[in-house]
Design a protein around this nucleic acid. Sequence first.
DNA 1: GTCTATATCCAGATAGAC
DNA 2: GTCTATCTGGATATAGAC
Lengths: 206, 206
Amino acid sequence: MSRSPELNQKMRDERREAILHHALGLFAANGLHATKISDIAERAGMSQGLLYHYFRSKEEIYTELIRGAFERMNAAALGLEALDMPPREKIELALTQLVKGIEEGEEFARMVMLNAQAGISEVTPPEARRILSEQSGVPYAVVERILRAGQREGTIKPHDAGEMSVAFWTAIKGLALHKAVYGAEFRAPDIRILTSMFFNEEESNG
Amino acid sequence: MSRSPELNQKMRDERREAILHHALGLFAANGLHATKISDIAERAGMSQGLLYHYFRSKEEIYTELIRGAFERMNAAALGLEALDMPPREKIELALTQLVKGIEEGEEFARMVMLNAQAGISEVTPPEARRILSEQSGVPYAVVERILRAGQREGTIKPHDAGEMSVAFWTAIKGLALHKAVYGAEFRAPDIRILTSMFFNEEESNG
DNA sequence: GTCTATATCCAGATAGAC
DNA sequence: GTCTATCTGGATATAGAC
């Protein structure tokens, strides 16, 4: 009755994913230290002992989540930059997608919280800290370049592009924080409130 | 050689303040659980045992910090609202002061982090949770009222005032988060990037 | 692969000497 | 008031049975 190696591997991967998924919810809410490995195991529907067959330690789970978050975020940012689209529309698309992501699911807001905690805390695992220091600048740099391109076209306000990029990402992170606190009650503000930080006013109307 | 009761009380208060001050730095960085009472005692320059003469438990210190943060924040918000000043200038003043507070010291950003954690975490002490649920809405409501008054004057954009208030505070919290991560490297964006979310464009120039 | 039981460690809080 | 020493509980990680 032995299953094929492929099926075994698939089940193993699914278990791993389940652990990561539930760990994210707990870490984002309570932080690395206050999250008990027994809670993760319970939510993932397995015994505490079995969890150690998938990850060496709590820190390894945490680090894996940080790694995944940056991989996806940076790939999305670079993908956005590569689109064949006017800079101003790229900014609008990014804000729309990000706010939608925050509004609709818990996952995105959790990822933001996790990264914020990891960036601040002194007890962040070394490997997670390394990933953070190497990769956390990418989205800022991407948005700054897009804004600069828009300034050359005259569609983006002439403020310092680096400062506007900080305003862009801190606004998003602030909204994610808000979502993490208020959960389902959260209603995102109209996207146009945010875009007005960056877009030159149009003389014509829509 | 017995000191006066007044002097004794004063020294006692100063010790208490020192504990609270150092605890805030640690809690904001690492959270309630990951902060060791021995670390707080060490930074405050006293033994672990002595700390228990000033506070019953770690949770009590935490709750006291939350209480103080809301007292000051809500007093400041209500004070701002009571000023004899056009609504638009109140918003500008508030943003200027808040951003300056974030930029210049660690204290303000730490308070924001503490409140964010407390709002999210499931292990937040019950009393702290009570304070949060009773008082966290005040600054949002104040800003919303000021924005509404500005809309009646025509100086504030006609977006939903509640949504703009959320945009206001999440932008501030996002900046505080950023400061908490980047510390001394942090440079605040030009205040005008933020005000453009709320202010109607002026036809005349300055 | 999966579970239960346990060794080990560490932090919060207390007791008691000075 | 202040310290050191200790009790106690709880969480991580491991060992070992099935």
